[in-house]
Design a protein around this nucleic acid. Sequence first.
DNA 1: GTTCCTGATCTTTTT
DNA 2: GATCAGGAAC
Length: 864
Amino acid sequence: MENTSTIYNDLNAAQKEAVLYGEGPLLILAGAGSGKTRVVTYRISHLIKDLQVMPQQIMALTFTNKAALEMKERVSKLIGSNVDRMWIGTFHSVMVKVLRQFGSLLHYSPSFQILDTEEQQKLIKTILQEQGLDKDMYDPRAVIQAISKQKGRLLTVEQFYEKYPTLTKCLDSTAKLCFPFYAEYQKRLLSLNAMDFDDLLLNAYVLFVNYPHVLELYANRFRYIFVDEYQDTNFAQYNLVHMLSSKHRNLCVVGDDDQSIYAFRGADVRIILSFEEDFPDAKVIKLEQNYRSSATILQAANNIIKHNRKRKAKELWTTAASGDKITYYRALNQQDEADYVVETIKKSVQQGQEYRQFAVLYRVNALSRNLELAFLKAQIPFHIFGGLRFYERKEIKDVLAYLRLICDPKDDLAFIRVVNTPKRQIGTSTVEKVLTLARTSGKSALEICAEVSRYPELQKAQNKLATFARLVADMRRNLQNPAFTLASYIEYVQNESGLVEEILNQMEKGREDSAQRVENLKEMLSDAVDFVKQAKFDTLDFTDEQLEENDLLAFVSRERKAITDLSTAPVKTYDGKAADLSLLEQEALKRTTESDSEAESLRQRTLLDDLHDYLEMTVLNQAVEGENDGNFVTLMTLHAAKGLEFDNVFIVGMEESIFPGVRSLNNIESLEEERRLAYVGVTRAKKKLTLTATAERLLYGSTTYNPQSRFVKEIPPELLDEKQNETSTDNYDLFQHNDRRHYGSAGSFSFGNYQADNYNSNKNTVAYSQRVINKGVQEAMSQLHKISNNKKTEIKLTPLAVGKSTNELELAQLKVNMRVVHARLGHGVIKQIEPVANDAIVVIQLDNGESKRIMAKAAHLQRE
DNA sequence: GTTCCTGATCTTTTT
DNA sequence: GATCAGGAAC
């Protein structure tokens, strides 16, 4: 076998062993920078190329879309083009695939929708109100978290109330929070035909338990299963993985217990720690050689992490030279700290380094502010990652809600969101009435509006509601209009709904972020163009679905036979109900007979298909492109930096109660998680690491004085090169004072609000900055250009057939002081043209004296 | 129904 | 200091 290929020659002994290891459970403990992804991708390629394993027999589960994408690309480079047949994806997306296929067994229709966190919270709020519960006692966010925790532990509603039959029996505080809500919440989800993120895992689990034959289908098919970042799995994921691999037992998990930093969202380190108990015959391979960092940096990392008690013995080593010492800078205050970072980068760049080789990491987002200002002042290009994600922005979510309502008129949550957005004088009380009527009659809210004249109690708002219903119906009808592409259709909805107009009106009133919001709407259009392009590429899943359609029929007939074999005994199910096989059978038959027409629509995707898939992508795939290969300094949280590497890394805010955070000071478990976070941060650096702390810090509106972080003290002093602001004499005393204080005490003390920072009103500078609020970490960092090259596509929209006249002015023809006619507003003069994305905001002085802002393209302005 | 003001809150984040 | 939700006044 050794002769099959030379690609294995660039692996070290441990890596090679992991790649070539045969059948059975395999745990790869891969330290930071030890070539983990390379090992996994090589192993997959080895299975396919050397052992003739079929790609469709391989499943690889990741936590993020970014990781899945990277794995796909790297595997496809190694083996050629047939990655498509493998199931490489996030836990969630893979389970969606399963549930779309078999969810009907759990009484969900295959088109169930997936709720995001905001909608979950809204649901909880309604339940809270309707049940008349004390809203000071229940914070919706905490309730959602509590429910999520139960689901992560695989407690269904039935099991939950079995375990906690009364409120007084809820000893656990999260159970207490759940108790009044869980059942009702779940009931609503079902009636909305919706699942939340945790349901995707929980329901897949329930499905597999209730219908062993379904599990068998997958367990048989997937001979090899891989799990990336195994230290981040929760109980539900753990169980799913074990079920799926129960047949062939070729489960390969990769992870590093020292890099487990997501316990706060349900990850359980014990899962990776007990892999060998789960599989006594497991092979364990440790990858300890680090190819990333200098010896000094590694030594620091090892010294920090060895203070943790619960962990697998593991020590990174390298053949690299010791390199530069770690700089530890003690600043006067956060300004001084930021200036130091900026100055250091400036100097290094003057000596020939590039901005892209620098990253500044921090524990909490709040620390980015001062850095941002300092970078702006110094005119150094930078990107801040984190903050609101693209699809979570208000203006985007509003458009998405319209699209959802158009797609599925029964989507009452979408209805609630948009019925009065933009404002249509439809208030909460009216909406309440509509919803009550909908609930009692079993109709959807939109249906009620469509036949509003039948309901005397809605008389006052009759016209408004009817107009809204007509608006949505019109939009829906236009789905059939062949002139539309997905992007041009979305643009049409953006305009027709009045959302764009509302933003422009707000701009009129001086709202500052309006231009940005318009730009986001435009960005959404190019996003849609790219999405369709990709969807045409990605035919991958359809072949698989086709395959499973037959499986579904086979499954039903087998299940039937099982029942007849057991004479009258019903199939054992999870909730005690017998499976309704006849329904399922009809469904399966229907699908097979439809498969011809489906195959046809495969060739010619309809606008509705595109829209459907697009909507699913927006919930499930939150990652959005960032600017990829720009030469800029990266600013992000330590969490976001996991998996990335930079030549030069700064970690700021190395102070007790910031890092480690206040909330972890009294708890060993979370303190150890903070320490792992420090370990992750330190190991991001390849050549040079700089740590900074301040004597005095203005945070959350008050000044604090924190002792230096214990993590700095855990680094042997001989590795550190300590520096401080030379202009100051009292600086050191301040630190002495801070450090004399005890660690465990409730963190920092404060002298109240004095002296705010000097830069507080720099809003204009912020606007021109290179700051990209919210583009995902995804591509900005990766060297994979493939997608990003497509991303910069120019938006080409099919012009609307309607309303286009020969007199219509093109964007380029518009000039200031030109007289124009607007179909609705009448005559006026162009006063200002402000380009935005591929369009422009035009200020028109109307003849009646009023001035209006409109989007140039949608306005269809004509020559006077 | 809408706007404007007050006051509580401020880890980390993906799906 | 900044944001955002919820309540009172318009």
